[in-house]
Simulated scan of single mutants.
Amino acid sequence: MEDVTLHITDREGKKHSVLAPTDMAMNIMEVIRSYELAPEGTIGICGGMAMCASCQCYVNSDNEINAMEDEEDAMLSEAFNVKDNSRLSCQIPITDALHNLEIELAPEV
Rank of each mutant, 00 (worst) to 15 (best):
C46I: 06
G41P: 12
D62Y: 04
T22K: 03
K14N: 10
I28L: 14
E69P: 05
C52Y: 01
S77P: 10
C55T: 04
I43M: 13
T22M: 05
L76M: 14
E78H: 06
I28Y: 07
L101C: 11
I43F: 05
L37K: 09
N66I: 09
N100F: 07
P107V: 04
M68I: 15
A50I: 05
G48S: 06
G47H: 06
I103D: 02
L101V: 06
D3E: 13
D73K: 05
H7I: 10
N66F: 07
G47N: 06
I45R: 08
G48Q: 10
A97S: 15
L101N: 01
P107I: 02
M24P: 02
S86V: 11
E72R: 01
M1H: 09
E12P: 01
E108H: 05
I92E: 02
E30P: 03
T22S: 09
V4L: 08
N60P: 05
M24Y: 09
M68C: 12
L19D: 04
C55G: 03
N63K: 01
D70N: 13
V4F: 02
A50E: 14
L76F: 01
D70L: 13
L101H: 00
I43D: 07
N63C: 13
I65A: 03
E36Y: 09
C52I: 08
E72V: 12
P39S: 10
I45A: 12
I8F: 08
Y58V: 00
Y58K: 02
A20L: 05
D3M: 14
N60C: 14
L98P: 01
R11H: 04
